[in-house]
Design a protein around this nucleic acid. Structure first.
Length: 476
RNA sequence: GCCAAGGUGGCAGAAUGGUUAAUGCGACGGACUGCAGAUCCGUUUCCUGGGGGUUCGAUUCCCUCCCUUGGCUCCA
């Protein structure tokens, strides 16, 4: 399989350092506010990456940090008169809830920055010992960019070019304007921890490198995030970790996802053009949202139009989900031993070949869009047989279903579990359907339509086809 | 200004040094249906930002220009 490596700026064949183990780190949130649809994209993409790698036999240890103490958290907490750590906790729990709904369950561990103070202090001390960092007059500690020759390689930036950019703040505490803080001296009223250099709190970049060094080691396989973090954050991670440990490279493969765009701009809180992740899940459902994300190359910018994008994604998704759901329904009801027609041999082979092709397609830098196109092809091929689907044997249905099960495993689409059909509805609705069928049989369409309308009003949609009447949760 | 990522049909978005450039959405026509929905079939001519170059052949590789977005020490 190949992965597009941002450091090499080219696709590279993936080879973990110690197969079959894969260390994967993805930059997580700074939970000072609710997550938006743009955040969802990255985390769904890397969920797919982890799922795929595991399917292909790798043992992935997936770590995603939580920057629970940071300027933004502190500022927001002050505004709301809330404890900063309580605020980030609250938003992180809400984030986890969204992830659970989205089926993002591949992360092994979400380390909190504040749980790694010993590691952070140790790394800062190493940097000072190696003279890569220095203590400022106020007790802050800065990393000296000049001490790391490789600085700028990932982003293509030249250190000299940063200075005329004029957005690097001149600061008397720094030896050079491009230096960045790794330990911030305490400000009264803000969270602080003891350190050899006085009370303070960790800078942003060093949290990640202290955590990965502890959990994944001085060198690891895969680092992912959206591309807006390349500079300065990932550049700083490389400089810090490699300077502290003396080992390189920190990361073997860098993956950067494209941004989610809204009205031609990056969706971001600072621009205010955000669409809430939880709200999008509420309105369209997790599967449609996942489909929307994975229906584009992960590296491309993706346009989000609050009115159109998810509506379109829903139409497309349901085109696949309906037949997939129908097959799953039959199998759930009758089991795989159900009797019926077998598939012709050639189609049996086609099912197996398609699953292989799906793996192959995805192994080309996680080309989920191409994989989805293959699923459409498969669906189109079989959907003309749908009304007669119930004639097939369990084994035949299983073969028809295999590509959708692949998609469930790797893309998280077409989940078999369907809660809308359970509960009281499952007993009531079929009774109503039978009553309506009797009305239709005697030509009493007024009564038949009345039953359908009443169910509709109660949130249940009926559909007739050659095999009878099906029902599902109605959508608005 | 510097660095990076992009520019493909009405829209969203793939791919490839080579027959008619995926797939989906939308639109239109038809089949099916008591109706609705879903589904199926068909149509959707004109799409690879501009200009050079390499090549038998370029949308793909190279150069250059234009445009959009991101980053340039808060950002998924």
């Amino acid at each position: 399989m190949t992965i597009y490596d941002s450091m090499a700026r080219a696709p590279r064949v993936f080879a973990p350092r110690v197969p079959p183990r894969v260390g994967l780190f993805v930059c997580g949130l700074t939970p000072y506010d609710e997550a938006h649809v743009g955040h969802g994209r990255v985390f769904v993409v890397f969920d797919m990456v982890a799922r795929a790698l595991r399917r292909w036999g790798y043992r992935v240890f997936y770590v995603q940090n939580v920057t629970n103490v940071d300027d933004k958290v502190i500022v927001r907490a002050a505004e709301q008169e809330e404890d900063p750590l309580a605020l980030s906790d609250r938003h992180f729990v809400s984030y986890l809830h969204s992830m659970e709904r989205l089926g993002v369950r591949s992360v092994n561990y979400y380390p909190y920055a504040t749980d790694y103070l010993p590691e952070i202090l140790e790394q800062i001390q190493q940097l000072i010992d190696r003279e890569a960092a220095y203590i400022a007059t106020d007790g802050s500690v800065y990393f000296s960019v000049a001490r790391f020759p490789g600085y700028g390689r990932l982003s293509g930036q030249k250190v000299e070019a940063l200075v005329p950019g004029a957005r690097v703040e001149a600061d008397a505490r720094k030896h050079a304007p491009e230096d960045f803080v790794i330990w911030k001296a305490a400000t009264p009223g803000e969270p602080e921890w003891e350190s050899p250099w006085g009370p303070g709190r960790p800078g942003w970049h060093v949290e990640d490198t202290a955590i990965t060094n502890r959990l994944l080691g001085p060198r690891y396989d895969l680092h992912g995030a959206a591309l807006d973090l390349i500079f300065p954050h990932h550049e700083a991670e490389i400089a810090l970790a490699e300077s502290a440990t003396g080992q390189a490279p920190l990361v073997n493969y860098w993956m950067h996802g494209g941004l989610l765009m809204m009205n031609g701009e990056k969706m971001s809180k600072s621009l205010g053009n955000v669409s809430s992740l939880e709200g999008a899940i509420d309105e369209y459902g997790p599967a449609v949202l996942r489909f929307f994300y994975l229906n584009a190359g992960y590296r491309s910018p993706l346009d989000f139009d609050p009115d159109l994008s998810l509506t379109e994604a829903r139409e497309a998704y349901e085109r696949l989900a309906r037949p997939a759901g129908r097959i799953a329904e039959l199998l759930a009801r009758d089991g795989e031993e159900r009797a019926g027609r077998e598939l012709p041999e050639v189609d049996e082979a086609a099912s197996e070949a398609l699953v292989e092709e799906l793996d192959e397609t995805l192994s080309n830098d996680f080309n989920s869009r191409e994989a989805i196109a293959l699923l459409f092809g498969w669906t189109r091929r079989w959907s003309e047989n749908l009304p007669g689907l119930s004639e097939f044997s369990g084994e035949a249905l299983r073969l028809l279903e295999a590509p959708y099960r692949w998609a469930e495993e790797v893309l998280g689409l077409f989940p078999r579990a369907d809660s809308t059909r359970s509960g009281a509805w499952a007993t009531v609705v079929p009774v109503a359907i039978r009553a309506r069928a009797r009305a239709r049989a005697r030509g009493d369409y007024a009564e038949a339509d009345r039953i359908r309308d009443e169910l509709r009003a109660a949130g249940v949609a009926l559909e007739d086809d050659a095999s009878g009447t099906r029902w599902d949760a109605a959508r608005e």
